[in-house]
């Protein structure tokens, strides 16, 4: 109980928020890093996922896209951050953090987007092609909307992963909100550690919640109501089976 009261006292002290090393500065560092690296990861992962989803790289490409998430899980973020920091990359300011963040942001995006494109209903894609859609139209008007839920799941997973990784960067000497926690550990200041943890956890939950909301609001299949009801009725077994197998593997 004391810890919560002390942490609250730490959080409500104005001095801790302003100035160099204050919460606002750390928060903006954290958001800048996360935002920049999410964009970089998406710029790398999404085109690659679409290319692989269309059969680029043959069998090997698909295996790679599916397994890269599992492989990423086995590599400790902390170890990668430290390795990059003490390597020559570490001499270039924030470079180790940015590289590490992109490395951990790409796998969830790539895997989910790949599954979304590769498993998009072949009948629908075939029908669209038969209607004379160009490859570009096909991508933007058929495949992307069909893959949308999984692409967004990937984006959410990646964003949360990046917020977490950015907080670990503090352990390897980087900036961000994690600094408040590590500084608290270094000075045996438990209230500060707890307060920092509340901030980091709050940010992660906020990002997750905001993206979940965005996903629901921007869902392309949400607008035409009648159009949505019919396909669900007509495909009783195939699509729910698919839907449960993939997200269950990827989101966890």
């Amino acid at each position: 109980m004391d810890a919560i009261i002390d942490a609250w006292a730490w959080l409500t002290t104005a001095d801790h928020w302003s100035g160099t090393g204050g919460v606002w500065q750390r928060l903006s560092e954290h958001l800048e890093l996360t935002g920049l690296c999410l964009l970089l990861s998406a710029a790398i992962a999404l085109p690659l996922a679409f290319w692989l989803g269309h059969g680029g790289g043959r069998r090997f490409g698909g295996t790679l896209a599916i397994n890269i998430s599992n492989a990423g899980r086995a590599v400790p973020t902390f170890a990668v951050l430290v390795l990059l920091t003490i390597s020559p990359v570490g001499e270039h300011g924030e470079a180790p953090t940015i590289i590490a963040l992109v490395l951990f942001g790409v796998p969830p995006l790539l895997t989910n987007a790949y599954v979304g494109v590769a498993e998009a209903d072949r009948d629908v894609v075939g029908a669209a092609r038969g209607m004379g859609m160009s490859p570009l139209q096909l991508m933007f008007r058929v495949e992307l909307p069909l893959a949308y839920p999984l692409v967004m799941t990937g984006l959410r997973t990646a964003a949360v992963q990046l917020v977490a990784t950015a907080s670990l960067a503090a352990l390897a000497g980087g900036g961000g909100l994690g600094r408040i926690i590590t500084a608290g550990f270094d000075t045996n200041n438990t209230p500060q550690v707890f307060a920092g943890a509340v901030l980091v956890a709050g940010l992660a939950l906020l990002v997750e919640g905001a993206l979940a909301l965005l996903q629901r609001l921007a869902d392309p299949r949400r607008r035409p109501r009648d159009a949505r009801r019919t396909p669900d009725d007509e495909r009783p077994a195939a699509s729910p089976g698919r839907a449960t197998t993939t997200p269950e593997m990827e989101t966890t």
């Binding site: 004391d2 977490a164 990784t165 907080s167 550990f185 438990t190 550690v193 707890f194 956890a201 966890t252």
Partner: peptide, 18 residues
Amino acid sequence: TVLYTIPTLAMYALLLPM
């Protein structure tokens, strides 16, 4: 799910007082 969203460093830090 909420627990899973909390970053590791924050999780360990939150458990410190306990």
